[in-house]
Design a protein around this nucleic acid. Structure first.
Lengths: 132, 132
DNA sequence: GTCTACTTTATAATGATTCTAAAAAGGTGT
DNA sequence: ACACCTTTTTAGAATCATTATAAAGTAGAC
C-alpha cells in the first residue's frame, strides 16, 4: 500500500484507521481544503465509517509536521488544512468563507528584503481577502 | 478627547471603559501586536483597573470592523491584533512565537494576476514564517 | 431630573482542541 | 499461532478562547 510509507515517515504505524484517513486525504486527484470536522464528515460519507476525533487530530498533526499537509494561515474559529503542499497561496472570500488556491505563478515572485539575524525563512504565504 | 470620535465612528458610545481601552491601544508612539489577554493584562498594568473581558472583546471587534485595528492572519489558538493598520506584513518566528512587522517596502510590490468574478481584493497579507 | 436605550459585568454556554485512561491492535520474538 | 510489550483507538472529560445572557449601571436626549 502506497500510504504505509507516508505513515512510517511521519512516525506512525500504519493502522486501519490511519490508512482510511490517508485514502480520503490523498486518493483524490484534486487537492482540497478542510477543517478537522470537514474531514471527519468526509470520512463518514466516503468510507462510511466513524473514526474518533482524537485519532483524526493525531494523524493530521503528524502529517502536518512532516509536510504532507499544510496549515492555511487564516483567522477563523477552526484550523484549515490543505492537501496541496506545493508552494502556493490563497484567496479567502470573506462573504462566503471560502478558500481558493492561488498558484505561485498567479502572484509572481516575492522578494523579502528584510533579514532577521539567525533566522531563516521557512515559508512565505500570501492571503488575499476578497469581498463582493 | 481625541478618542471620542474614534469610538463614535465605530458606533460606540464613549464610556469610561472604552476610553481607557483607547488609551492603552492608541496612546503609545509605537504600534504593537496583542491578543485579547495581552490587552487585558496591559490595561491592568498601565491603568491599574479591571475591565471585563466581554467589554474588551466588544470594543476590539468594533475597532477591527471599522479598520482602527487589524487582525493578523496566523494560525494560533488565540487571535492576534495589530494597532498598526497601515498596509504591511509580518514575520512569525516559529521558535519564539513572536510577530515582527515587515513594511511594505521590505516586500516589494505584489501583483495578483488571477481575478475572481464579481469579487474585489480587500487586502493582501504576507506571512513569512521564520525558524532558527 | 427623568426616561430610554445602550453598556458593563459576572457568569454561563459554546465549540474547537487536547488530555486521559482503559480497551484494542500492531509488531517482534518464539 | 502465541505471548508480550508498546502503540493506538476511543469515549468522554478537561481546557481554553470566545460568545451569549441577563441583571445592574450609565449616557444622552428631553
Amino acid at each position: 500500500m502506497k500510504y504505509i510509507e507516508k505513515l512510517r515517515n511521519s512516525g506512525l504505524r500504519p493502522t486501519k484507521q490511519r490508512l482510511q484517513i490517508c485514502q480520503v486525504l490523498f486518493n483524490s486527484k484534486k487537492t482540497f481544503h478542510f477543517t478537522i470536522n470537514d474531514l471527519k464528515k468526509k470520512i463518514e460519507k466516503e468510507i462510511n465509517i466513524n473514526i474518533s476525533l482524537a485519532t483524526i487530530y493525531n494523524t493530521v498533526h503528524a502529517f502536518e509536521n512532516k509536510g504532507y499537509l499544510k496549515q492555511i494561515p487564516i483567522n477563523s474559529n477552526q484550523t484549515y488544512f490543505d492537501t496541496n503542499v506545493s508552494d502556493h497561496h490563497h484567496f479567502y472570500d470573506l462573504n462566503e468563507g471560502r478558500l481558493i488556491d492561488l498558484e505561485n505563478s498567479d502572484v509572481g515572485p516575492i522578494n523579502i528584503k528584510k533579514k532577521i539575524n539567525g533566522k531563516k525563512i521557512k515559508s512565505v504565504e500570501v492571503l488575499v481577502k476578497l469581498e463582493a
